[in-house]
């Protein structure tokens, strides 16, 4: 199968804390891969490796077959132009209003006129249920609204690969469903590759082609949603059924 992103034997420590310990993960092109795992387990760190924000201590990160850990800034920028990313805390520019935030990648990397940009921004904001929020400042938004504005910015350029760090955490059940549907629609309509970190298992089963579970610095299980549900590993079973007792020490 054709993998657009491949992490090979990644090791990463912060100080004395070992976060990734020989992690390998393949992300198939044109599909949605969901990463699940414990809070603080290193999921965001994995996502940041894929786009070169964090360099591994050891291991390779292949994007389109090329190792981005060996690239200089200019090459890395070229690769990053094919990515969109939603940060866990949205990371909106708080000196700009929502409209300018969403317009930012368009202004930087396209030659669209201001009128076309305005139209594209309105369209993306409508997709995430923020119609008319252009003039609001990030500090005036609720957490869920910030997340959705960040989502609109991440998909603004309709990039080839989109990384979503917990797109539905903190949203009400209706919005959760709507955003999951948006992720699925975007992926199917544009045939893009999506990598989604999620704690929302029900949603993950709906949108994922593949689910990978991160545990103790490695991917311990990966496969189709059905495959994962039938996985007999007691760690996986405990996690997907959300039980406090089992091989995973919860507290």
């Amino acid at each position: 199968m054709d993998n657009i992103i491949e992490l090979i034997d990644i090791h990463k420590s912060f100080g004395k804390q070992k976060v990734l310990d020989g992690l390998s993960l393949a992300v198939p092109r044109g599909q949605t891969t969901v990463i699940i795992g414990r809070s603080g387990g290193g999921k965001s760190v994995v996502l940041k490796h894929m786009i070169g924000l964090i360099k591994p201590d050891r291991g390779q990160v292949l994007v389109g077959g090329q190792d981005i850990t060996q690239m200089d800034d200019r090459e890395l920028n070229q690769v990053r132009k094919s990515f969109g990313m939603l940060f866990q805390d949205a990371a909106l520019f708080d000196s700009m209003n929502v409209g300018d935030n969403v317009a930012f990648p368009l202004r930087e990397h396209t030659r669209l006129s201001e009128k076309e940009i305005k139209r594209a921004v309105a369209e993306k904001l409508a997709l995430v249920g923020l119609t008319g929020a252009e003039e609001k400042l990030p500090s005036q938004l609720s957490g869920g609204m910030r997340k959705r504005a960040g989502l609109a910015r991440a998909i603004a350029l309709e990039p080839e690969i989109i990384l979503y760090d917990e797109p539905t955490t903190g949203l009400d059940p209706l919005l959760t469903d709507a955003i999951n549907r948006l992720i699925k629609d975007t992926q199917e309509r544009l045939k893009i590759t999506a990598v989604v970190i999620s704690h929302d298992l029900a949603g993950a089963y709906r949108i994922a082609h593949n689910i990978a579970m991160l545990y103790q610095g490695r991917i311990i299980a990966s496969g189709s949603p059905d495959g994962l549900r039938q996985n007999q590993d007691p760690v996986v079973q405990q996690f997907i059924h959300g039980r406090a007792e089992g091989p995973i020490e919860v507290l």
């Binding site: 940041k48 786009i51 924000l53 070229q78 990053r80 990313m85 990371a91 990648p105």
Partner: peptide, 8 residues
């Protein structure tokens, strides 16, 4: 980081 990600 968001700037880096957006290749700026």
């Amino acid at each position: 980081d968001a700037l880096y990600v957006m290749a700026v």
